[in-house]
């Protein structure tokens, strides 16, 4: 996708991330501003707490992380808990369709896991460790899925089938120990497979969001990243253990069993 602005007013969202203060306008909903220090200010077009929350969780927070230099990984992060020494337990990054990711998150949270961030997850490299950040937005799932899981979801917007559900949360940054892509299972497909070789590199190449959510690296950086730096990051991401879990329905406990067994064997368990 070209990042060149459309040269006419199409009535759609406007985002200006040039300069130290970023501005965004979503006609009908409101505007956001991210100050030079990363502080977020949201202003709903109509006095509505619901609209402000949507602006904050659905837009402003994401850009605020980018403004602070975080990359946004196209996945949700969950942890199994802290280590015995008190340090944060490793995080599992679940990628794929947000709807499918939520299915796995709900099963894992029912087993005591904690959600660090719904999709997308802010991440940053600390030396050679990819660290996932906690993001306060709630887990968003479809009404039907929440009902199926016995959860009382709160519609994020009037009339929407997207509901926020309360799940246990992790509040501390955690190192990403593995990346697992979630898919729906087709006939004849195995429920779980470890990803190796070229496929792992291919998946690493598409993990991070670019464009509007590319990390800001300082003055004059409008989100552009050099190809060399991107390839170097892909190589580092490809070094992380990676797998593929294929769900046969929304609450596929057996597939998640295989995922957890692999996670434990890979050293992810705290």
């Amino acid at each position: 996708m070209s990042e060149t602005p459309v040269p006419h007013d199409h009535g759609g969202p406007v985002l200006d991330r040039d300069g130290p203060v970023w501005h965004g306008v979503l006609p009908g909903l409101g505007r956001i501003q991210i100050d030079a220090d990363g502080a977020l200010d949201v202003s709903a077009a109509h006095a509505s707490e619901e609209d402000e929350t949507a602006l904050r969780h659905g837009w402003g927070d994401l850009l605020a992380f980018a403004h602070r230099g975080f990359s946004m990984a196209q996945g949700a992060a969950v942890t199994q808990g802290g280590r015995p020494d008190g340090s944060p337990g490793p995080a599992l990054l679940l990628t794929g369709d947000a709807h499918d990711i939520a299915d796995v998150v709900l099963v894992l949270c029912a087993r005591g896991w904690r959600l660090l961030s719904d999709r997308p997850t802010p991440v940053a490299w600390q030396d050679d460790t990819l660290v996932a950040q906690p993001r306060p937005a709630p887990l968003v799932v479809a009404t039907q899925r929440a009902t199926g899981a016995g959860l009382a979801g709160q519609p994020v917007r009037a009339g929407s089938n997207a509901v926020a559900v309360a799940v246990p949360r992790a509040a501390e940054p955690a190192p990403v120990a593995a990346i697992v892509q979630v898919q729906r299972r087709r006939p004849d497909e195995e429920p779980f497979a470890e990803v190796l070789g070229q496929r792992r590199f291919e998946r690493a190449a598409t993990l991070m969001l670019h464009g509007a959510l590319a990390p800001d690296h300082g003055a004059g950086d409008a989100g552009a990243e050099s190809g060399e730096a991107m390839v170097a990051e892909h190589v580092r991401l490809a070094a992380l253990p990676s797998a593929l879990v294929r769900l046969d329905g929304p609450a596929d406990e057996a597939a998640v069993d295989l995922l957890v067994a692999w996670w434990t064997a890979a050293g992810g368990s705290p």
């Binding site: 979503l26 969780h57 659905g58 980018a66 947000a98 997308p120 917007r157 969001l209 509007a212």
Partner: peptide, 14 residues
Amino acid sequence: ALGAYGIDPRWLSS
């Protein structure tokens, strides 16, 4: 829209 504007569409109305 995530890449284009940084917007998570799940938070929007129809």
